[in-house]
């Protein structure tokens, strides 16, 4: 359903993506792993058109994303940003219900608020936080609000950029289960970036490893441990020695 074909992206002399090929099927949960700074976030943003690739083609259901009708295209997506990216001028529930308060999905305020509170509950937040502002919450709480906002309008494709970073192990477990649920029950297609190997095993159908600007390895999560790829092995075992240099 989503296909990246030979995607390149540089920022000045920093050649981040150097020919990324990746395919995600409908209803599949793809997890992208890879070292810090290898361009995982840039890859997600390229699909959404927030970053314009220098070359290569990205398609959604066979249609080039740069040619798609923007509003209809974006209405199918939800995205959790790595830093949360909550609007600090709006209260928590208005953040979560942003899509439901304006545009084509607009609905009555009371109903939008109710949905927001329900989504907050699903990410482990009490209704009391609804009227607070982002600056009043801890980093992990902000992250979960960002997650609630990404899933609020029940999009069919959801991107999660490090959903469990900064969360305690129990909360990580809750979020992993939630993502799995969204994929299995709602039939959503998910693409998740994470450094957390527990999360990878909990959420992924398929795993792709990004290294030096290309997809080094991709395959089913069950094959990850036995794939024999030295890069993947070093990464999942967290060894300092191996083909991946520690300084990059």
């Amino acid at each position: 359903m989503i296909k990246l074909d030979n995607v390149y992206k540089s920022f000045g002399n920093n050649h981040v993506l150097r020919g990324v090929d990746l395919e995600i099927q409908r209803g599949e949960s793809m997890v992208v792993i890879g070292g810090s700074g290898t361009g995982k976030s840039v890859t997600l943003k390229s699909v959404l058109g927030l970053v314009t690739p220098d070359s290569g083609v990205i398609t959604l259901d066979g249609e080039d994303v740069t040619k798609a009708e923007r509003d209809a295209f974006l209405a199918r997506f939800g995205m959790l940003f790595q830093g949360g990216a909550l609007f600090d001028s709006l209260s928590i529930w208005e953040n979560v219900a942003f899509r439901l308060l304006r545009g084509s999905l607009k609905r009555p305020k009371a109903e939008a608020r109710e949905i927001a509170i329900e989504k907050l509950r699903r990410v482990g937040l009490k209704p009391e936080v609804a009227d607070q502002f982002p600056s009043e919450l801890s980093g992990g709480m902000q992250k979960r609000v960002g997650l609630a906002r990404a899933i609020a309008a029940e999009p069919e494709i959801i991107f999660f950029d490090e959903p469990t970073t900064g969360l305690d192990p129990i909360m990580s477990g809750v979020i992993n289960e939630l993502i799995r649920e969204i994929v299995v029950e709602m039939g959503a297609t998910a693409m998740t970036i994470t450094h957390d190997m527990t999360s990878v095993r909990a959420i992924a159908d398929k795993v792709a490893m990004l290294h030096e600007g290309v997809i080094q390895w991709t395959g089913a999560v069950a094959d990850m441990d036995t794939c024999g790829d030295p890069y993947v092995e070093q990464f999942i075992q967290g060894r300092a020695e191996g083909p991946i240099e520690a300084v990059r």
Binding site: L50, F81, A85, L86, F87, R99, G103
Partner: peptide, 16 residues
Amino acid sequence: TMKVTEQIDALVTLST
């Protein structure tokens, strides 16, 4: 600040 903290990107992804 909104740009730097990806809030502008977030607006776009929320169809705004």
